[in-house]
Simulated scan of single mutants.
Amino acid sequence: MAWSSLFAVEMLIAAFAGGAFGAAIGALPAFIFTGFMVIAGEAANLARGAAVEAAGVDPSTLGAIGITGSVAFGPVFSPAISFAGGAAAAAYAAKRGYMDTGFDFHEAKNIAFAQGTKPDVLVVGGLFGIVGYWFTVASSTLAMPYDPIAMGVVLSALVHRLALGYPLVGDAPNGLLNMRPFESEDRRVVGEAAVDGGAGADSNAEADGGVVHERFVVEPWLPHQYRWLNVFVLGAVMGVLGGFVAVKTGSPFLAFGISAASLVFLNCGVENVPVTHHMTLPASTAALAALPVGFDPASQSAVLTAVLAGAAFGGVCALFGELFQRVFYAHGDTHWDPPAAGIVFGTFLVAVAAALGIFPHTSWVPAL
């Protein structure tokens, strides 16, 4: 990308539409669409590669299918656009008092909720779709050594949290990393009833849109996925999966698409469905980066090394995502995406590992 892309009219219009789409159907459903688009795009790329090999022709003569790059990771389905726009729209709608869904946490964190057709909410989603697009273009143009889309999600959430008047981190009287108050089901009263400063009062009542209800003192991003050991083991296992899929297909994104698409079950209310895309994407990237250029697919040692690299990156990124949620999600009022932060961290680690000579290259991540 180039700096001129920042103000390409057709891209800005598409990004606005993508952000509004995320607001209309909800950030999580929009991200699930991203997962399906990635699966479709990578399947098309693999089919194209098979056709090229069978026909023995120059791949450049067939053209690029481009579903992954131009649709799944571009307007309209880029997570920095549709998902981030939907998250910002939820924060705005909660601020305006539009949301009263009975959600256990702050309503602004209810990213599965479809905002529907409210014009002002759609406009906010659209504007943050443009913000996410700008962040992505800036990172790509500067060739920053991390996933530019994931960084767009992270920075967009920072902007919407501050721009809409929410606290950056939130109150954590028991410590930022302490999840025990949630396990004890400790609650606080928020909204107008808490303005007088009674017991358990929320010091940020204004951010709750005047709605009176109770909230947990600590709100873990995933109540079924926050214990350190459990998270690490899950990450390592998903890292093996991501690494193996990447080595066998050559795609660093297919396992990510599978992880993202699997969230359709979480969105439908199936209990204990894990969130794993911040494990599989860095793991797939690390596995491919660990392979020597022109490696022999029949080399069991090379494949084993790549898969083990995937396991290590899956586990580490899972832990980083958990650390991020404990600091920036559990005590705050809006959705600040832990998986996006984990992907930024993991892809940056790939660039660092290559710079140190641990990996022979960086796969698709720009080098340091």
Rank of each mutant, 00 (worst) to 15 (best):
W134R: 06
A24W: 03
E10G: 06
S262Q: 10
G243D: 02
G235R: 03
F313I: 03
V189A: 10
V316M: 05
I67Y: 01
T276H: 04
S140T: 13
K248F: 04
T136F: 11
T334L: 07
G126C: 04
G242T: 01
A72W: 01
F320T: 09
E185P: 01
F7M: 06
V71F: 13
T305H: 12
L368K: 07
V245I: 14
M279I: 09
N204H: 14
G242I: 01
A51I: 04
G310K: 03
A15Y: 00
L62H: 00
E271N: 13
A341S: 15
E183W: 07
Y329I: 08
F256D: 02
P220N: 12
T68P: 00
A255E: 03
V240A: 11
L349I: 12
I111A: 12
F348A: 15
S60W: 00
A72K: 03
L177R: 11
H335T: 08
G63K: 04
V307D: 00
G126A: 06
A44P: 01
R187G: 01
A340F: 11
A20N: 05
V154R: 10
S156D: 12
A24F: 05
A355T: 13
P29W: 03
A306L: 02
A199V: 13
V195C: 04
V365W: 10
I67G: 02
M238T: 01
A24K: 05
I343P: 10
V365C: 10
V344A: 14
N110M: 08
P167H: 06
F16L: 09
A30K: 06
Y226R: 13
V76P: 14
E219I: 04
L222T: 12
F103Y: 15
R215Y: 11
A201E: 11
F256Y: 14
F21G: 05
A340L: 10
G35I: 07
W364D: 15
G116F: 07
L291C: 11
I130P: 05
K109S: 13
A311H: 03
I32F: 06
L164S: 12
A354D: 11
L349Y: 11
G56M: 00
T61N: 00
T362C: 14
A205K: 09
S284E: 09
A89E: 01
F16W: 02
A312W: 03
A157C: 13
G332D: 09
E185R: 15
A43T: 13
T117V: 12
G239H: 03
G200S: 10
A287Q: 08
A112F: 08
A367F: 12
V52L: 03
D58F: 04
A351P: 09
V307W: 01
P274V: 00
V352P: 13
V316S: 04
F103K: 09
A236V: 11
P338F: 10
V154A: 08
A290L: 02
N204Y: 14
P145Q: 07
G35N: 05
H224K: 09
Y166F: 15
Y226C: 05
I130G: 08
E214M: 12
A163D: 05
L368Q: 10
F295K: 04
V218D: 09
N174S: 15
G74W: 05
I32S: 02
A355F: 14
V264W: 05
E322M: 10
N267Q: 14
R188M: 14
I81Y: 05
I130L: 06
L291Q: 09
L356V: 14
N174T: 14
Y166P: 11
M144S: 10
A15I: 00
A246M: 02
G342H: 12
A150Q: 13
G18C: 07
